[in-house]
Write a protein that binds this DNA or RNA. Structure first.
Lengths: 331, 331
DNA sequence: GTACAAATTGGAAACGCTCCCAGAGGATGG
DNA sequence: CCATCCTCTGGGAGCGTTTCCAATTTGTAC
């Protein structure tokens, strides 16, 4: 079934059917209805390849390396929610999502994507592949958006959680609970999100009139045992902390484990707070108080921003989306 | 840059360039080399839309509802690994993966996918959307494959873990460790994987000459507290079990929690075994012995099977992929 | 050197749509 | 009633490939 055949059956020309399909305003209502009826009767769907060939436009958005985003300690909740948000927003706007697992070592794997015209724009994760691609896309002037990080250059659009405010909220919340000696576990120095959260946390501490002594600021690397060791060290300090803010849920969960094993009661002896809102954090003992990231919203916003740019040509604007405090029993 | 221009620069016809691009055997080696040189010099990539229009073939595979697969208790590791396998295999074969978050309530969302010709074949998850689509695809003779479940009809192709053997292995392993009174937590009665694992487990018990009394077979529904309640009940039995096999890791992890809270030592007082191989299971206390599902392999196999069918027209054959015992310290 | 088959290559017609341009009516104003 | 302007519709020329078929070149055996 082609547009030609529909035109025939509806007694109009190809052009008119095309106009109906594309919601052109200049079709008489009566004609539109007639054509639509035929289209539905025949179960006609326009051929995507032909459309995109003729119009020189694509309706698919590629996602590169999404699981590099916030996939610390093997927790893949965030990336998957991101994907879900992306898929949802794309569906709303009638775009398709392509999952492009590119190999950064083989540029042709993504060059072909960029150059074959099948992709209208890219959403890039924070991993190696995403960063490598960024350069190429920038050079070739292909629209792209970064997620889960902040802009490396001011003219590059990024969508992320409001990590700074999240850190701030954590500090203020702990302070409001009456804790004075609050320590923080933060991530690698080269992870943008970790830096932002720490930054916000420090601002929050300051604004609450609290000190953060250097020995209370512990940089942990990725790895299972880090939080354990860090806790052990922290606990042997002459002045033990009353509360600890972890830049991410998995180390917070580990800290909970550590406490249980060392007979430290949470929250009576030590309050623990996380960041992310992974599902498992609701099932710990005690359930973890944490800051939830709007993963789905980030995905959706990225798509919406990209599509708006695709449609209007307006420059894309970065945004950081609000996080939410989930009060549970660990503080 | 078009094929025409390349032809011109290489001093051959469009047809010849096309043959080179498509690895046709009937191009003289010398010519092929010359054309390839020009292609590379010019950084030419064929236009995907034009190709698929002319050839009436698509090189994209759509994945529907992958996170419905084994996403119990909010654990999304399996679905994401699945996706990773799918993406990898597609990349190997030069196919694209489309993430199609279709709305089962609005058939036009997927009918358009099927009928616009942009998708060559589908990989369906086990959720509502996947099942609904199956009917349509079957009727319309569009190739599709199911993952993470066993065939509803013999002529439908499914790729899954070998759950039966996994259950069997679990029983034999626990028996080999000397445990006699072994209980089992299994999932909802309508989840195919749960049924298979239980089935295999029973076979394993029988083959080891062990009894499985009815009160040792506990059906748990999805939910956080189920494993807790089930354990409490089990522990109040006159004959307490020495070991427990959980059909999935999350309830096993909950069981570990329960044990810790009730002063039951693992594995001395109670051995716990899981199924899935989620990353978190390596970080529990003690680390969980479990059966690992080959998530990535399943994704890859699904794609390979589908593509082979697309290429050759041969019928697709179902397969269940081997699972692996991960010995840790909980047994 | 010739005849014939095989290996290569070129040409042209699709593939199913969009989009520009021109044309047909109908309404409006003088 | 005619010129003018709108609104709506039709026609045709692509879009960049593939693919069939015919033409040309090359190779082989006599």
């Amino acid at each position: 079934m082609t547009i030609e055949r529909i035109a025939e059956l509806a007694g109009v020309s190809r052009s008119t059917v095309s106009r109906v399909i594309n919601n052109s305003p200049d079709v008489r209502e009566e004609t539109r209805v007639r054509v639509m009826r035929v289209i539905e009767e025949q179960g006609y769907y326009p051929n995507a390849a032909a459309r995109s060939l003729a119009s020189r436009k694509s309706r698919t958005i590629a996602v590169v390396d999404p699981s590099s985003v916030d996939a610390r300690f093997g927790d893949l909740f965030f990336p998957l929610m991101l994907l879900r948000g992306i898929a949802k927003a794309c569906q709303n706007s009638n775009y398709n999502v392509m999952l492009s697992n590119v190999d950064p070592k083989r540029p042709e794997t993504y060059l072909s994507l960029v150059n074959s015209g099948e992709v209208a724009g890219f959403i890039l994760g924070t991993g190696r592949a995403g960063v490598d691609m960024m350069e190429h896309l920038y050079e070739r002037n292909v629209p792209f958006i970064l997620i889960g990080t902040h802009p490396p250059r001011p003219d590059i659009c990024c969508i992320t959680s409001d990590n700074v405010t999240g850190g701030f909220m954590a500090a203020r919340y702990l302070a409001s609970k009456g804790y004075k000696r609050i320590a923080v576990f933060t991530g690698s120095r080269d992870v943008g999100t970790a830096i932002d959260r720490l930054e916000g946390f420090k601002q929050g501490m300051a604004s609450a009139g609290l000190e953060l002594p250097p020995e209370y600021e512990v940089w942990t690397r990725q790895g299972n045992s880090d939080a354990y060791e860090a806790m052990t060290q922290l606990w042997s300090l002459p002045e033990r902390p009353e509360a600890i803010f972890c830049w991410s849920d998995p180390p917070a969960i580990r800290t909970l484990d550590w406490a249980e094993q060392h007979g430290v009661r949470v929250p009576q002896d030590l309050a623990v707070m996380g960041f992310d809102g992974v599902p498992f954090a609701a099932m710990t003992n005690p359930p973890l108080t944490t800051i939830e990231q709007p993963a789905i919203d980030i995905g959706m916003r990225a798509v919406e921003t990209l599509i708006k740019h695709l449609r209007t040509g307006e420059p894309m604007v970065s945004s950081s989306l609000p996080v939410r405090l989930i009060e549970r029993d660990s503080c």
